Amino acid sequence: MLRFSGKVAIVTGSFRTVHGIESSSNGIGRAIAILFAREGAKVTITGRNIKRLEETKQMIVKNGIPEEHVLEIVTDITSGEGQNELINLTIQTFGRLDILVNNAGTGFLDAEGKTGVDQNISDLDKSINLNTRSIVTLTQKAKKYLIEAKGEIVNVSSKAAGPQASPDFIYYGMAKAALDQFTRSAAIDLIRHGVRVNSVSPGLVRTGFGETIEMSDDAFEKMVQSMESNKAYIPCGKAGQPEDIANLIAFLADRKLSSYIIGQTIAIDGGSSLIMGMQAFDMMDVLKSQ
Rank of each mutant, 00 (worst) to 15 (best):
R3I: 15
R3H: 06
S5K: 14
V8T: 06
V11C: 03
V11Y: 05
H19F: 00
E22C: 11
S24L: 07
I28P: 03
F36V: 04
A37I: 00
R38P: 00
R38E: 14
K42V: 04
G47P: 10
R48H: 08
N49C: 10
I50L: 13
I50A: 14
K51G: 09
E54W: 00
E54G: 00
E55A: 04
E55C: 01
M59P: 00
N63A: 13
E68I: 01
H69C: 15
G82R: 01
I87R: 03
L89V: 12
T90F: 02
Q92I: 03
G95V: 04
R96P: 06
A104S: 06
G105A: 06
T106P: 04
L109M: 15
D110M: 05
D110E: 05
G113E: 12
T115G: 12
S122H: 11
L124P: 07
D125R: 11
I128E: 05
L130D: 03
T132Y: 15
L138V: 04
Q140D: 13
K141G: 02
K144P: 00
L146I: 06
L146K: 07
A149G: 06
A149K: 04
K150F: 10
S157C: 11
S158G: 08
P163C: 12
G173K: 04
G173E: 08
M174E: 13
A177M: 09
T183W: 02
I191G: 05
R192Y: 14
H193S: 15
G194M: 07
G194T: 13
V195W: 11
V197E: 06
V197M: 05
G203H: 09
L204M: 09
V205F: 05
G210T: 01
E211F: 09
E214S: 14
S216L: 01
E221T: 09
K222N: 11
K222Y: 00
M223A: 10
V224T: 06
V224C: 07
N230C: 11
N230W: 00
A232I: 13
P235G: 10
A239M: 03
G240I: 02
Q241K: 15
D244Q: 02
D244C: 03
I245Q: 04
A246D: 12
L248W: 05
F251D: 13
A253R: 05
K256F: 10
L257V: 12
T265N: 14
T265I: 04
I268V: 08
G270S: 02
F281Q: 10
F281I: 13
D282H: 12
V286K: 07
K288E: 09
Q290W: 07
Q290Y: 10
